[in-house]
Nucleic acid binder design. Structure first.
Lengths: 277, 277
DNA sequence: ACCAAAATGGAATATTTGTTCCACGCACAG
DNA sequence: CTGTGCGTGGAACAAATATTCCATTTTGGT
């Protein structure tokens, strides 16, 4: 009955991170064999997902049963549960993605498959750049403006149009009032904007004069303007209150919009989430 | 004794690449169930490393024994050998880029930055999956159809609309005759389609009835239909002559479209390039 | 319409792998 | 020196999984 040993009862780590923490925590106050397990797994945690108990045990220089005990000390029901944790945390692109990409690129010059590889690569780089260069404070500010808006007006032409079109769809699904200004109607769009609204404008070089004009209109009326653009010193920057920048790596003359859409989508979902609270 | 069937003896693929080649090689001249296996594995080769026979079989919609036969047809002794191949090709360890993402994700629950991280991750995974599962022959076929078309008709609604909207923009820039059928005009769209044209339709689950109807119309008239969808056995597959599949990893209820746009863009550029020659 | 060959699905079996259990040994306290 | 308790290792057990086999269905040719 009087349980509660010093190592507490049994909270099984729910993430790889939590697993590492727990590992560091118990390390040093373990029996000899279990310490061997801890040391080995700390060093080779990447093998957990694919190896069997026997392989781990051999690697650590202990019998399989020691590995089992170790898993249970950490709070898992057994090795299977630990392995599940690591398998689910694995990236889905399992086989050698890099070599596959290289092979595709190496194909016939201008072949469709080679093009796909290029665009995939460009998209991936764009996404990574987004993650690295993201300004959390600016993002926070943008969400704040959008969350308090009565109606969110969406503006974007040419290559930006798909982005705002998707935003319009997503906002509708999320039950957020949004209006898409896609056509040539700078005039009608202006008429639709009311105090309390916000304009979310997406534009990249070369900046469409029409989009810039719409942003100017919003500013004239006194509406906050949130801009999604490619450079901090773009023409939009002077017109916008909040400027989110996305550097999209392009291949040839075209961009895959991956990072732009990812950011736009995040904006939309974050906005909807904040409204519900 | 006198073995040597027409499909030669048994050279088991020694690399992931060789496996893909062999897959494309035998595809099309296989019995129904085995073809299902081939299709499924071509699209989800990333699951081979971690799944069990039963899971693969369920995913492909065939009994486990069919999967076993398929493995043997490819030259493997069984599924275990195939799985070994894919496991050995797996990347080791978790990329440090993942830790950067993990930090962002670890932020306040539902914080905008965390959302960005999720969408970036989903987009990146989708792109990798696209590169890995791309069927070069199908892609080639699609480009072939599009390149010889008089006019390319574009159809896609809801979440697919941004994709076709972008395609319309890109085709215009590339000087390729394309027409976007976005509105409700199933009738007007039908009237616009002429012999020699091609319909490029983009649709994901849940498949819009309108889009499917348009594809059916094109087929009735005798136009080739190229489909960009999420599953090989989607309703579109029966209506389309060429089916390109993209598995987009989604976060929450929304998708970043990264892979879809990358593939669409590649199609457009490749089509334009082929026309000029 | 019939037959032969191929394909199919599911049940039976083999194998691999995870998990539990218990006899033994070692250390330490009395 | 001896008893108690924890740690240990291997063997027995259980579960999951791969693989084979064969009765039945389907296919393709004449």
């Amino acid at each position: 009955m009087s349980e509660v040993p010093t190592t507490t009862a049994a909270p099984p780590p729910a993430s790889v991170e939590a697993f590492r923490d727990r590992l560091a925590q118990v390390s040093g106050q373990l029996p000899r064999r279990l310490q061997q397990c801890a040391d080995y797994l700390a060093e080779h945690s990447d093998r957990i997902a694919l190896s069997t108990v026997a392989q781990i045990a051999k690697g650590a220089g202990v019998p399989p049963s020691a590995v089992m005990r170790f898993c249970q000390v950490l709070g898992f029901s057994g090795f299977a549960e630990l392995q599940r944790l690591f398998r689910s945390a694995m990236p889905v692109g399992l086989p050698d993605y890099a070599t596959r990409l290289a092979n595709l690129k190496a194909g016939p010059r201008g072949a469709p498959a080679a093009l796909v590889a290029e665009f995939v690569d460009a998209g991936r780089q764009s996404l990574e750049a987004l993650a690295l260069n993201l300004s959390e404070t600016t993002l926070e500010q943008a969400v704040g403006r959008l969350a308090t808006a009565r109606v969110i007006h969406l503006a974007g032409l040419r290559r930006s149009f798909p982005v705002v079109a998707y935003l319009a769809y997503v906002f509708e699904k999320l039950d957020v009032a949004a209006q898409l200004h896609a056509g040539t109607g700078g005039v009608s769009a202006r008429a639709a904007m009311r105090p309390g609204d916000v304009l979310l404008v997406v534009s990249f070089a070369p900046y469409s004069a029409e989009t810039l004009a719409l942003a100017q209109s919003a500013r004239d009326i006194g509406l906050p303007v949130v801009a999604l653009t490619d450079r901090r010193d773009s023409p939009l920057s002077r017109l916008a209150d909040t400027v989110l920048t996305v550097t999209e790596v392009d291949f040839g003359a075209f961009r895959s919009l991956s990072a732009t859409i990812a950011l736009a989508l995040s904006l939309a979902v974050a906005t909807a989430a904040r409204r519900e609270t």
